[in-house]
Write a protein that binds this DNA or RNA. Sequence first.
DNA 1: CTGAAAGCGCTTACAG
DNA 2: CTGAAAGCGCTTACAG
Lengths: 341, 341
Amino acid sequence: MKPTVHDIARSAGVSLATVDRVLNGRPGVRHVTRERVEQAISSLGYVRDVAAANLAKGRTYSFVFVLPNYDNSFMIGIRDEVHAAISRSGAERTQIRIVEVPPFDAAALADALNHIVPDRPDGVAFVAVEGLEVHAAVAGLKDAGIAVVTLVSDLPGSERDHFAGIDNHAAGRTAANLLGRFTGGRDGRIAVIAGSMLVRDHRERLEGFLAVMGESFARLDVLPVMEARDNPALTAEVVSAALGRYPDIIGLYSLGAGNRGMLHALREVAREARPVVVAHELTATTRAALSHDLIDAVLNQDAGHEVRSAIRVLKGKVEGLSVIAAQERIRIDIFLKDNMP
Amino acid sequence: MKPTVHDIARSAGVSLATVDRVLNGRPGVRHVTRERVEQAISSLGYVRDVAAANLAKGRTYSFVFVLPNYDNSFMIGIRDEVHAAISRSGAERTQIRIVEVPPFDAAALADALNHIVPDRPDGVAFVAVEGLEVHAAVAGLKDAGIAVVTLVSDLPGSERDHFAGIDNHAAGRTAANLLGRFTGGRDGRIAVIAGSMLVRDHRERLEGFLAVMGESFARLDVLPVMEARDNPALTAEVVSAALGRYPDIIGLYSLGAGNRGMLHALREVAREARPVVVAHELTATTRAALSHDLIDAVLNQDAGHEVRSAIRVLKGKVEGLSVIAAQERIRIDIFLKDNMP
DNA sequence: CTGAAAGCGCTTACAG
DNA sequence: CTGAAAGCGCTTACAG
């Protein structure tokens, strides 16, 4: 039988309360007693039953998710996943609240984070926007003993405990590789459409993309990035314009969330003249476009994984555990039409 | 506060024992009583605390994993994951045993399955090999009330409860798509190296591969499949021979586990003359080959996911729950050198 | 057919 | 610094 606290208590000749103190590193145990208990723990090979501990603690973790009120499919997916987590709250002993902020707005984000401090939740997860005020707000949360995780977009150099998102640099490299290979040795131009270079994840994707293009596909000429703020109409317009102006565009990398607009522009082009297209995030839109050969490959980050990982890490931080990096790494999925899930 | 069994008992005016009987569909409750309790359950919005239930039950699930004693990296990975699950046994209330059988041997597999019946475990997971005797063995397990899941390779048409593995047909299609695209419009031959067409997963991959090759890449001429029983030396030999005989092989699909041998043969070929290569399973070998541009893409099934999914499904079956298909679907991962995890 | 009581493996006031 | 007792939300003999 698996040893329990009772076995340890008996073996060490102490009470359950003392075993518990040692087990949880709580103060108020004489050194010799502690040692006796630790001895018993290791010699019996005790390992704590987390479920039972949680049941006894009756503890619930309070977390706040700060998300942009931004209606692209991916962000909607993230919100849905947070709601799914909320609906699992009972079983997972969490209490999760969502705070919405305007997108791409450092001041508003910092403000929202600062307002959370007095509530003293156990942890906060947020989609980072860069800005000194955001760094300061993170420091404020940490000072208040609140665990902090960035989600989807990171804030390196800040005091956040963890980033739950993909390596966007690697995503950009992967996109370049696919686009380079899929264009099959032909010469030509590559167009890149982004949301905004002010957002870190877009910037990193572009960097990775350009690096591989330079290293491995010198025959391809990458046009200056077009920033269309993930706005469908604007995206459609700039993509149309670019395709009109450069008939030798043979590849298109959509690294932001403007896929609907991009597809609109692409449909205007005769099938044989369409460029190879790599886009981000598997949504209803990109899924349909993959099946209809309008998009050739989709890079995806799994919103469910990200949200669940964020929650797991926050819980761990509250418990003072360290993150198991390998387990919490969010993968860059590649989907072609044949391996869509 | 979340309602508990106590709340239901109070609200329905019955004892905890009766609540428990209704909750778990156990007999011995008068119809009217049962209705009263059910009414309370739904009106209070009760949802059972599974962790507490498990604690009280003290139940452990006994499972047997029947695995081929086959030393390719992927199978070793599967075994490692089962061992990892065994080491989590305490926390997960499972008791898992591994039974090894010779690979590709239907009679031996059926024998092993038959021998498990008298032990009456709660569930069995096994890597299927086709054969009537295996179907019969599965029927025997099911007759004994044992949950049955196939792992990695399926046995459709049998009475198994679930298959924990990828859609190999889709994997083959994906491979064809990648290979077709990566060869970039050039004409030439494609070589396919497999373990054995007697194994269902290999056969399905080939079918999917050939289907897409026929549909979309008529310019490519697929050579007859080479079966090398996943044997490194033999694989090296046949691949070398093929490359020697057909200098216009521009693509290679390795759909089995013979990657080490294949790589050996590839390294003999001048860098510029090397074909585009798509292989299966991310292992130390294929990982290194990806980094060194010897392999261009790896399709992967996550052994950890498969094993954990198998265990989850077995537990669910024992509890009489139905599988949430979407959650248990095993993905076909695509890895290029830039998005390796 | 129904209920009172004990127990699963922990944690937590409270008392000393 | 240490311990006895109660309790977390369930389940399980046992008795009636």
